[in-house]
């Protein structure tokens, strides 16, 4: 049952991702990104990572998409069709294909037979919180300072004065 849901969501996300990088309408691209990110959130839920799923929805679908849409708006993205790709399309395609062709079989073969256990007890958020604030408190603090630096820097760069 979960396998079936996974396949459906995976196919949708994959399709949306491909449409994102290949279509001409920039706002449509942003909307395809929403589909991909929501698909990811559903898969996280399936894999019993509930907290990460909600953070994904909150931050990615909530803030990141809005930010990107603002970016598109402020840079006067043509809502209609625009010219599609740089000349590099013919290099990028093979590169991506080769990367996939090399990586996917290797990973498939090596991790064959391993399953993801889907029966976790409740209390995922509490365990996660304990883990972050005890074992991983150093990266947590550094990320807080990093967010401050990114905030100050980005506002400084983007403001009109």
């Amino acid at each position: 049952m979960q396998g079936l849901i996974f396949l459906v969501v995976a196919a949708t996300s994959g399709f949306a991702a491909v449409r994102l990088v290949t279509n001409k309408n920039l706002v449509h691209a942003a909307l395809y990104l929403v589909v991909t990110l929501m698909g990811m959130a559903i898969i996280f839920l399936l894999l019993t990572a509930e907290f990460v799923a909600w953070v994904q929805v909150l931050i990615y679908v909530g803030a990141v998409i809005v930010l990107l849409l603002f970016g598109l708006m402020l840079t006067r993205a043509q809502i209609g069709k625009t010219a599609l790709d740089r000349q590099q399309r013919w290099v990028a395609g093979p590169v991506a294909l080769v990367l996939f062709g090399v990586t996917a079989p290797v990973l498939w073969r090596f991790f064959d037979g391993r399953t993801i256990s889907l029966d976790r007890q409740s209390g995922n958020t509490e365990a996660l919180g304990t883990e972050i604030f005890t074992k991983f408190v150093l990266p947590f603090e550094v990320v807080s300072v990093l967010l401050l630096a990114a905030l100050v820097g980005a506002v400084f760069l983007a403001k009109k004065d």
């Binding site: 991983f136 990266p139 550094v142 990320v143 630096a149 400084f156 760069l157």
Partner: peptide, 20 residues
């Protein structure tokens, strides 16, 4: 840092202000 997560976060801490 002797942990992948810490190294990753520290690397980003170096890079983001550098971009600015």
């Amino acid at each position: 840092s002797r942990d992948l997560i810490a190294i990753f976060v520290a690397l980003e801490m170096i890079s983001l202000p550098a971009f600015i």
